[in-house]
Amino acid sequence: MNEASFIPQSYKSTVDSGSFTWESPSNIALVKYWGKKKDQIPENPSISFTLNQCKTTTKLSFSKKENDDDFSFDVFLDGEKKADFKPKIETFFKRVEAYLPFLKDYYFKIETSNTFPHSSGIASSASGMSALALCLMSLEKLLDKNISEAYFTQKASFLARLGSGSACRCIEGSLVVWGNHDKIEGSNDLFGIKYPYEVHQNFNNYQDTILLVDKGKKQVSSTVGHNLMHGHPFAQERFKQAGQNLENLIDSLKNGDLDGFIKIVESEALTLHAMMMTSLPFFILMKPNTLSIINKIWEFRNETGSKVCFTLDAGANVHVLYPEIEKETVLKFINNELVAYCENGHYICDVIGLGANEI
């Protein structure tokens, strides 16, 4: 399948107005994608857990307009009009117009809300762009009633990727692969796919407690961060490392090897931050409390034999991952030892989810 597969030939139906609402979760990458080529193509494959509670709900209302010379839309976050969101949406519309040729035919009202702080290291762009892509696909399905469920899902992921790379991993769950990897059948650079192989019951209902170390806006945007990989002295080795880590993770997921899982996941998190610290310009995205939490997790694991571990996105917040069987013990540890390092003591309890839902 290539990009041309998602260009519609013609629409046999018409619709004047209506609305759709989708909720789409964020995700947390286990093997990180960092660095991209033209058109949001990843430099390396990645795999993520789809979350459940950390999600974006987007209502897309549309009405036919007479003048179709340009895009026409407004964006609202939590009921407040957000003019500063419009440039990103307009860029997205320009990227996907060839695949959704009806975009200039309608005025769109985009109403969105998150269950988690915006721009704080939880992937709000990913959940937001995937929810919007799903709403647009629902409109396209009205115009072309022959769209299959499989095509709907693939194209939604494809479109979401053009808004925010990791958004393509939000459509389904609980594990999603994005990027071509010769050991994973069906993997490709254009859209995310559900992880196709056996997953041990150790990973059922895996827990993710997100410690909000810093709820402010991220120091550097993901787009800027990805671009720093161009010409990075360690970039090519990093891309190879990610591919090898994903291959190794296949065995850990199949065999329920939690120690192997922990080794890969924590290494990936620290490598992501190492790449940022060794770029030009360079950035330190972790805060002192991030490092304190990591050291506390290592101490707790060494003392108790727990299978708790951490991962990080491109920010200061810490995702604490652990098996469901350890939920009571780890939450007690978090409340006793880690909550003091969170901004205002705030954290979010989440669990691995199954993807987006239409409301």
Score class of each variant (00 low, 15 high):
residue 5 S to M: 09
residue 10 S to N: 11
residue 14 T to P: 00
residue 27 N to H: 05
residue 45 P to M: 05
residue 47 I to S: 01
residue 54 C to N: 12
residue 59 K to L: 13
residue 59 K to R: 15
residue 62 F to M: 09
residue 63 S to P: 09
residue 63 S to G: 04
residue 63 S to T: 15
residue 72 S to M: 08
residue 76 F to M: 09
residue 76 F to G: 10
residue 80 E to V: 15
residue 84 D to E: 14
residue 86 K to H: 15
residue 88 K to W: 07
residue 93 F to S: 03
residue 93 F to E: 01
residue 97 E to S: 14
residue 99 Y to C: 14
residue 102 F to A: 05
residue 103 L to G: 06
residue 107 Y to K: 14
residue 109 K to W: 00
residue 111 E to L: 07
residue 127 S to H: 07
residue 131 A to H: 04
residue 133 A to M: 09
residue 135 C to K: 03
residue 137 M to A: 08
residue 142 L to P: 00
residue 142 L to A: 07
residue 144 D to P: 07
residue 146 N to S: 15
residue 148 S to Q: 08
residue 153 T to D: 03
residue 163 G to C: 06
residue 165 G to Q: 09
residue 168 C to V: 09
residue 171 I to K: 03
residue 171 I to F: 02
residue 175 L to E: 01
residue 178 W to V: 06
residue 180 N to Y: 12
residue 180 N to A: 10
residue 184 I to S: 06
residue 187 S to Y: 00
residue 190 L to N: 02
residue 192 G to K: 00
residue 194 K to Y: 02
residue 202 N to T: 06
residue 212 L to F: 11
residue 223 T to L: 14
residue 226 H to E: 03
residue 227 N to W: 01
residue 230 H to F: 03
residue 240 K to F: 04
residue 254 K to D: 07
residue 256 G to D: 01
residue 262 I to S: 05
residue 263 K to Q: 12
residue 275 M to I: 01
residue 275 M to C: 08
residue 280 L to D: 06
residue 281 P to Y: 12
residue 281 P to T: 04
residue 281 P to W: 07
residue 287 K to N: 12
residue 294 I to R: 04
residue 300 F to N: 07
residue 300 F to Q: 07
residue 302 N to C: 09
residue 310 F to K: 00
residue 314 A to S: 14
residue 325 I to W: 02
residue 329 T to V: 11
residue 330 V to A: 04
residue 334 I to V: 15
residue 334 I to L: 11
residue 336 N to F: 08
residue 337 E to I: 09
residue 340 A to P: 05
residue 341 Y to V: 10
residue 343 E to I: 09
residue 352 I to K: 01
residue 357 N to C: 10
residue 358 E to S: 11
